[in-house]
Structure formats: structure tokens, C-alpha cells
């Protein structure tokens, strides 16, 4: 708008639009979020000032019909703040969804971006959500809820190890995954590692 209101929140929305099509998370927009919060507070103070002037510090009731210009102004401030809040919510909500997706499915690119992309509160969410997910998964160990969502095809596959993983526990014993080795393994034991790029299917 000409008066500049809403510009900061637009920045968040454009960052969100970009995020929709990325397979990693861009850095948290700390400054933009702070700017929007600051604007909300300033707008709120202004609205309070206008209102307290109109009501003579609360001694008379504000009659919008008698002061249409001031009523319009107040409505503008109110609508601006609702819009600002919606942008903040949408921005954060989108990122939370991405963090959850990572907790379920992993993803190497996502994992790399998380180290620098998260805000402190997002980091806290990630760790709390991971705990929650572990608790929900618990009773379902037989079906491994974070296992592959691609229909099973070949139960046993040949893989080559691209990066050292070390020993992993499987349903039927441990296997050792050292760089450059080739193994005949159960697909389900290694599919997460394949997704993360440690192994490659031959």
C-alpha cells in the first residue's frame, strides 16, 4: 500500500511461495518476522491512540456513524493487523509442515539445510515432534511407520555403499556397511539409507 503497511508481511509470503517448490528449507527470515511483529505493535498502538482520542480516554462511547473518516482509519488498521497475522501464521505453518515431513521421510538435502535454516523455536519444535513421533510409532514397530511409502517390489536387492555407515541393526542380525562394498540385502533394511544417499541400488 502507499502508506507502506503490509510490505513486510508480503516479503514473508514471497519467501513462502518459493519454499513451496523447494526440496529444502531456506533460512528462517528472522528480520522479516521481527519487522512484521514491530509493525503489528505500532499499528495497534496507533489504533489505541485514535480510539482513546475519539472516546476522550474512554469517557464517551465512539459512534462510528458520526466519525466515518476515523472509523475507516480504524478499520484499515484492524484489517492490516489481521492480514499481517495471517501472513505470519501461514509462513510458520508452511515451515512446520516441512519439518514434520523431514521427521517422517528424512532427505539429505533437507537435512543439510536444517542445520542453518531453523530458528531456535523451530529447533525446539523439531526435537519435540521427533519425540512425539517416536511415541506414536512405538506400538506399531511391526509395520515400521517411517519405512518406505513406495510399494514393495523386490524384497532383496544388491547395493553399493557410497559413504561409510558402519554397522546397522536389522530384523535378522547386524550388517556392516563400509565404503565401496557391495551387498545383497533386504530392501527394507536399507531404503532409508538409499533415500539419504549413503547407498546406491545396483
Amino acid at each position: 500500500m502507499e502508506n507502506g503497511l503490509g510490505n513486510h508481511s508480503n516479503k514473508l509470503i514471497h519467501d513462502s511461495k518459493r519454499t513451496l517448490y523447494l526440496d529444502y528449507l531456506p533460512p528462517y527470515q528472522t528480520d522479516a518476522v521481527a519487522d512484521v511483529v514491530r509493525e503489528i505493535r505500532a499499528v495497534d498502538r496507533e489504533a489505541s491512540a485514535v480510539l482513546s482520542h475519539l472516546t476522550e480516554n474512554g469517557t464517551v462511547t465512539f459512534q462510528p456513524e458520526e466519525h466515518p473518516s476515523e472509523a475507516a482509519s480504524l478499520l484499515m488498521l484492524h484489517a492490516t493487523n489481521l492480514h499481517n497475522k495471517r501472513c505470519l501464521m501461514a509462513y510458520h505453518n508452511l515451515r512446520l509442515g516441512r519439518i514434520r515431513q523431514y521427521c517422517w521421510d528424512g532427505g539429505k538435502k533437507m537435512e543439510a539445510s536444517l542445520k542453518t535454516a531453523l530458528s531456535p523455536t523451530e529447533r525446539e519444535y523439531l526435537s519435540r515432534y521427533s519425540e512425539l513421533l517416536a511415541a506414536y510409532k512405538g506400538p506399531w514397530t511391526d509395520v515400521d511407520l517411517t519405512g518406505s511409502t513406495v510399494p514393495p517390489k523386490d524384497l532383496f536387492i544388491d547395493v553399493r555403499v557410497l559413504e561409510d555407515v558402519g554397522e546397522i541393526e536389522t530384523e535378522y542380525g547386524t550388517i556392516n556397511l563400509t565404503k565401496n562394498s557391495q551387498l545383497h540385502v533386504r530392501t527394507t533394511d536399507v531404503e532409508r539409507l538409499i533415500r539419504q544417499g549413503y547407498l546406491v541400488k545396483l
Binding site: 518476522v33 512484521v36 511483529v37 503489528i40 505493535r41 495497534d44 497475522k85 505470519l88 501464521m89 510458520h92 512446520l96 530458528s119 523455536t121 523451530e122 525446539e124 519444535y125 519435540r128
Partner: peptide
């Protein structure tokens, strides 16, 4: 809820 409060809600009116 805790996330939203700590991220920005607590700083709003």
C-alpha cells in the same frame, strides 16, 4: 501452540 507462542504470538497485543 507452544511453538507459535514462542515464535511470535507472545510479542503481539
Amino acid at each position: 501452540h507452544r511453538f507459535y507462542v514462542n515464535s511470535f504470538l507472545r510479542d503481539l497485543p
